[in-house]
Amino acid sequence: MIAVAAFLGFRSYNRKLPTLENVVPRQRIAAENLTYQYEHDEEKANRLFLGFVIQVTGQIAEITYKPGVSCNIIIGNSADLRRVSCMLDTNQFEKIANYAVGSIITIKGYCTGYLVDVELNRCIIVSNEN
């Protein structure tokens, strides 16, 4: 009994961050709507989105890809100052080859808040079928 408890405790303590593949997003939202909500009432937007997994759709404005290191996608209107910045999970890097600036993309990620852009991390690219 003690051994089982110890084992479960060890597993829980060393648990890795899960990927977001099977996580149901709290909300599905267009990038422009998300940035609008944060621009106009950051506190209210934080209550809705901060710390939750959300799914965002929009046009790719920028891709910053450092192979093997990081990949960040900015979604939103190129003319807008505020957009959605999505840091991809490392297991998503291969998928970025299917996208380019101007493509429409749907990304699911963990909302960490708002600086210049609305920030999402641990992001995965949602397939078109979803």
Binding site: K16, G113, R122
Partner: peptide, 14 residues
């Protein structure tokens, strides 16, 4: 500088 606290990523979820 400005940093979002939820943006810190750890190896362990707990």
């Amino acid at each position: 500088f400005a940093v979002l606290m939820k943006g810190f990523v750890f190896k362990k979820a707990l």
